[in-house]
């Protein structure tokens, strides 16, 4: 009788241990983040761009306030205005908290998006949103830090479009990466993440 009980206890313990190991690896602290898809801290990024008012800007310009950063271009007729409209709405929802944010559209199309063009484009959206762009070399450095990608795709004879990472990247005021708002997440989810960026670190 005692032996049956011992075996049963061992069996239950083994099941419990396997469940725990599974949890640890999949949902628990042991989860392996796919290294290449997570941005590094802004403090570790080195790049130099121009904003829409021709000021020199860098990753350091984003420190001191939480930041939301989005990649796009002004020849993008669908995804980019939609995302900028989303960001504008979130900033409206934040009310006075919106001023605590750096909200940046980074154009991955410097050939067509000069600071002047960006200035006009962002004027249609929330006034807190600023536009940045620069040389392809500097943009590449920024994209590498963000683990983000863009690719120029020909569209007819002289035209092209750009495939690009479409999420909104959130950073805390100390530059640490907080989260990405996916392009299909609803406003409630987005605001939860935004509040997380305000509260951290």
């Amino acid at each position: 009788m005692l032996r049956v009980f011992t075996y049963l206890l061992i069996a239950i313990s083994m099941i419990a241990i396997s469940i725990f190991i599974g949890w640890w690896q999949v949902d628990g602290p042991g989860t392996k983040a796919p290294a290449s898809t997570i941005p590094v801290s802004l403090t570790q990024m080195e790049f130099s761009l121009k904003d829409h008012e021709n000021n020199q800007v860098s990753a350091r310009s984003l420190l001191g306030k939480p930041a939301m950063v989005f990649f796009g271009f002004t020849y993008c007729p669908d995804i980019c205005p939609t995302t900028l409209e989303n960001i504008s709405r979130w900033l409206d929802e934040l009310g006075p908290d919106a001023e605590k944010f750096n909200a940046i559209l980074v154009s991955v199309d410097p050939e067509r998006d000069t600071p002047k063009v960006l200035a006009e484009y962002i004027s249609y959206f929330h006034p807190m949103i600023r536009g940045w762009t620069g040389s392809l070399t500097e943009l590449d450095k920024m994209m590498a830090g963000f683990a983000a990608k863009y690719e120029r795709v020909p569209l007819g004879k002289d035209d092209y479009t750009i495939n690009h990472s479409a999420g909104v990247y959130l950073f805390a005021e100390d530059g640490s990466f907080v989260s990405i708002i996916d392009s299909h997440e609803d406003a409630k989810m987005a605001l939860t993440k935004i509040h997380r960026a305000i509260k951290s670190p």
């Binding site: 898809t37 495939n163 990472s165 990405i180 996916d182 392009s183 299909h184």
Partner: peptide
């Protein structure tokens, strides 16, 4: 056109 976003978060048209 169709805008899509892949599993890596990259949108294309």
């Amino acid at each position: 056109h169709n805008s899509t976003t892949n599993a890596k978060g990259i949108s294309s048209m």
